[in-house]
Design a binder for these strands. Structure first.
Lengths: 144, 144
DNA sequence: TTAATTGCTCTAGCAACTAGAGGTTCAAGG
DNA sequence: CCTTGAACCTCTAGTTGCTAGAGCAATTAA
């Protein structure tokens, strides 16, 4: 049985994060030692490694929750799993496109800067006046 | 003088967001009408447009705060401005790289799926076992 | 045995907003 | 002039996925 610290080392997930996952029911309530410290078996280790890997791939916790409940029921068709992965792939692609557009414009801005004073700085100018830029980075910077 | 609703329409920034920006001192306290409603002149319109554009480019609010205070002092050299933009460009590039790696792996996972049951679903399998994957998507999904 | 480390719970904070409750003011139509 | 409905006001709390800190108890190494 692993302590929370050893589970943390084994998976690369930080200790408070493990407790947080338990709190939001992504991990089951841990067994406890005589002194009330959490103890983990190999099942939880696997489950946490799964979560960790999915997080690294950018899946939000709610989708991971779905994936976990699907993987608990191995006889089901895996269409639902695929759908989630496809959705995630689409989200990643959308973000890449947006970011590529931003990169282009940032580069444009920087290339035009003659590095004088702020008064005639292209960067400040472009930021202040949308007409001057390569246009069409839509709303919503949080969807990056 | 514009009402908050009209300022919102003019800039594309939502009404509660404008109030939020005032709260965190990104916008100055607005003048008020007889009935205590906010009124805005062209200066604030410009400032908000600047903020909006910078947000669209992915700048975090704290960097926008810096950019604004730099642009208030037009006689300074614009090196500091450039530095912020360069930093932002680097952050965007890093995110693109990471996302591209994730895309690759998601695609790999999906291609291998023979779409049977969950029991032999490659997606679930790869998520559960890191050895099976293209490796080396580091920690920190939040830096996407 | 004792000191250092690790563990516990609980609360609060981060970014950058968004949503909702519950009330006031304004502009237009009748 | 009056009424109705939209737009405005303040305030609190929620979102996502953690992270930090306070103030303790338990475990482990020297």
């Amino acid at each position: 049985m692993l302590s929370i610290g050893n589970l943390s080392k084994a998976t690369g997930v930080k200790v408070p994060t493990i407790r947080y996952y338990e709190q939001i029911d992504l991990l089951p309530e841990a067994a406890r030692s005589a002194g009330n410290q959490r103890l983990y078996g190999p099942k939880t280790l696997e489950r946490l490694a799964f979560i960790r890997h999915a997080r690294d791939l950018g899946f939000p916790l709610e989708e991971i929750r779905e994936l976990l409940s699907l993987s608990d029921d191995p006889s089901q068709p895996c269409q639902a799993v695929d759908q989630i992965a496809v959705r995630q792939l689409a989200a990643v692609n959308a973000r890449i496109e947006r970011l590529a557009a931003l990169r282009t414009e940032l580069e444009r801005m920087l290339h035009q800067c003659r590095c004088g004073t702020v008064a005639d700085c292209r960067v400040i100018e472009v930021l202040g006046n949308h007409e001057l830029c390569g246009h069409d980075h839509g709303t919503a910077a949080d969807q990056l």
